[in-house]
Computed example of a mutant assay.
Amino acid sequence: MILISWNIDSLNAALTGTSARAEETRKVLTKIHDQNPDVLAIQETKLRATGPTKKHQEILRAHFPEYRYVWRSSEEPARKGYAGTMYLYKKDLTPQVTYPTIGAPEPMDQEGRIITLEFPDVFVTQVYTPNSGNGLKRLSERQLWDAKYLAYLQELDQVKPVLASGDYNVAHTEIDLKHPDNNHHSAGFTDEERVDFTKLLAAGFTDTFREVNGAVEGVYSWWAQRVRTAKANNSGWRIDYWLASNRIAGQVKRSEMMDTGARADHCPILLEIDL
């Protein structure tokens, strides 16, 4: 089974945009399709509450004709066109789809951050974790989210094994970003966020990239768009993950980043597992 997860930074821009960046994004979508994934998880869709427009649907069908899709958008009282998630999965698959709320601080549960697919032998769930924000204004709320999300994954794991992916907005260790010394008080690398991620792994989950690739350095999943030289200099962060319940972690064959060329922001992450 091949699964891919990607923070796309606006599905609308990817599908209908005319900029050079939009063209780059569509090339990545083609590269993803060429991998023939069984499941594709997309974060930060930024779609309106009613979901994909007719034009979006037509383009999705053209690019991914073998797939069905489900989506979840931000809804009141959350901001419009904010966050959001989507799954595309092969038409021969018949997962049960749920859109959980986890009791997070308002309005996080209304920001469209989690979708879960239940298959006969595994849960596949994705998350777009809230960012702690400029000046760490949202850090305390983020910590509450982390606790609630951990409890949710544990609930799933008690039923059957879990594969969890997404933009977790945290670089776990110092080798997960280029400049750790300068970022100990930056959102995504605070002690609090890193401790919470450690707790998540300690609760029975494996960071599959580290499981497969060991302590390799210089491999990241996000490069700041606002810093023009970030991608060229590989000044990045690894904040996107495929996690697996410990009891199936040994069945992972590949866990890797997909190349996006000069395109900054997030890259897709690929997991191959023998289920």
Rank of each mutant, 00 (worst) to 15 (best):
M1V: 08
I4Q: 02
I8K: 01
L11M: 13
A13G: 00
A13L: 13
A13Q: 11
L15D: 03
S19P: 03
A22G: 07
E23C: 01
E23K: 09
E24Q: 14
T25N: 02
V28D: 03
L29R: 07
T30I: 02
D34R: 08
D38C: 08
D38S: 15
A41V: 02
E44V: 04
E58D: 13
I59L: 10
H63Q: 15
R68Y: 14
W71S: 01
R72M: 12
S73P: 12
S74Y: 05
E75V: 15
A83T: 08
A83N: 11
Y87S: 06
Y89T: 12
K90F: 02
K91I: 09
P95M: 09
Q96D: 13
V97T: 15
T98F: 10
T101A: 04
I102M: 14
A104K: 11
A104P: 00
P105T: 07
P107V: 08
M108C: 04
G112N: 11
R113N: 08
R113D: 11
I115N: 04
T116C: 14
T116K: 07
E118Q: 15
V122Q: 12
F123N: 00
F123L: 01
Q126I: 05
V127P: 07
P130W: 00
N131Y: 11
G133H: 12
L139S: 13
S140R: 13
W145R: 10
D146I: 10
A147P: 00
Q154K: 15
L156Q: 09
V159Q: 14
V159F: 08
A164T: 09
G166F: 06
Y168H: 08
N169R: 06
V170L: 08
H172K: 08
T173F: 06
T173P: 00
H179M: 05
P180Y: 01
H185E: 14
S186Y: 05
S186W: 00
V195Q: 14
V195A: 12
D196Q: 15
F197W: 11
T198A: 06
L200H: 06
A202R: 05
G204H: 13
D207K: 06
T208P: 00
A215G: 06
A215W: 00
V219Q: 12
S221A: 11
W223H: 05
A224W: 03
V227W: 04
A232N: 02
N233Y: 03
N234I: 07
S235E: 11
W237C: 10
R238S: 04
I239V: 13
Y241S: 08
W242Q: 02
W242G: 00
A244E: 05
S245C: 09
N246L: 02
R247L: 08
A249P: 00
M257P: 02
G261P: 11
D265R: 09
C267R: 01
P268A: 02
I269F: 05
I269D: 01
I269Q: 02
I269C: 03
L271C: 03
E272M: 03
